[in-house]
Design a protein around this nucleic acid. Sequence first.
DNA 1: TTCTTCTTTACGGTTTCCCGTAAAAACAGC
DNA 2: GCTGTTTTTACGGGAAACCGTAAAGAAGAA
Lengths: 221, 221
Amino acid sequence: MFHKVLIAEDHESSNVSVRKTLEDAGIALCDYTYYCDDALQRAQKAFLTHEPYELLITDLSFEEDHRKQNIQNGVDLIAEIRKIQPHIKVLVFSVESKVSIIHQLFQDLDIDAYVRKARRDVEELKKALEALSKGNKYMPFALKQAVKTQNTYEFSEYDIILLTQLSQGMLQKDIPYYLEKNGYKPAGLSSVEKRLNLMRETLGCSKNEQLIAFCKDLGII
Amino acid sequence: MFHKVLIAEDHESSNVSVRKTLEDAGIALCDYTYYCDDALQRAQKAFLTHEPYELLITDLSFEEDHRKQNIQNGVDLIAEIRKIQPHIKVLVFSVESKVSIIHQLFQDLDIDAYVRKARRDVEELKKALEALSKGNKYMPFALKQAVKTQNTYEFSEYDIILLTQLSQGMLQKDIPYYLEKNGYKPAGLSSVEKRLNLMRETLGCSKNEQLIAFCKDLGII
DNA sequence: TTCTTCTTTACGGTTTCCCGTAAAAACAGC
DNA sequence: GCTGTTTTTACGGGAAACCGTAAAGAAGAA
């Protein structure tokens, strides 16, 4: 089992639970922070004093408040800590449920475990710790419970620009001008129409209003 | 301070933290459930044996899983428990941050406290318990401020029907038929147009897409 | 280069939406 | 009953969106 663990989690209630879980698992030395910058600082210090953390447990989203932060989310935090300590194990603990996003964490950041904040999350945390301490990865429900809906459509940056502008009240016919001014291509009205049509078609939306509502629900815009 | 508290919270980690917070506050008798139906059942039983709960702490959203539930969210749970025990105090503990939704909880369900899952949530829980035990309500600071500055526009049931239908892809011109079929008045297309126009005007939206996005953000639809 | 293929744009017809005006209906008070 | 007010509906012109098709352009391969 691990000896020295670092927790980065802004929600106090989650932070407490993670700590308690580690305690129950017999991990005595566990430090915690509510901000990414603090976490990085602690990791740096621990590494320099030759007492590095073996495991980082972090959330993905951190809320902004009065304290200005350089690092504002878990992904960046992981990247920064890995720069100074490439082989630290990482467990991500978050509410995120989109398979594609979780998959990216394993693929791009090479994280070691993902536990979703959900009904049995403490139980899962324990299992994940178990697996990690044995040198295994832990990616539980990720591929099993394929998240609901046929959200197979991949929204491009271009799509999101269109949706954002629409949702901010820009007329469709004015979007070409906006696109051109900001250097996005294609900029023709027909292209805009075609793209919107494709999105509606793919997602089974008959009108733009429905499309906007759908994307709002997905948190894309 | 309270003597008997019931917790309904599906996330195990949050559930644990709330329990620990109550414990620290010296509340010995605290039961917890991960499902709404279980919570209702316990409340019923406690009430019938003349040992009712004094306080309900509940989340708003409960995730579905293999266990089919009659009650699927905190709002319904509160309503059901209040049917049998109208004066039970209620503290809602949720990630919801939309002012309009929280405001509705106080207004329509007459809840006694709201604590948002966030950076200092355990601290806030303690304060809320303190306030409640003294017979006070506990509102997040942001809400008190926002109550005044909140957009004065009151969404009627009729408005929400229009917005909902639009967001589900119904053509504007088909809405009169729908309204008439379901007995809503007025049902004329002009009335629909006028109402939508008023909403856009009042909320500073130039297009329906923007209106839908706005209302999605507010959590109205 | 030329040819092919794919992407982007331009254009026209149709539908839907937007908005103003006016008629019709509902409602209140007398 | 009548009269004035408000709400609802009907209608019509113009703008925007929608949709199909065809032309223009870009990219790649021979």
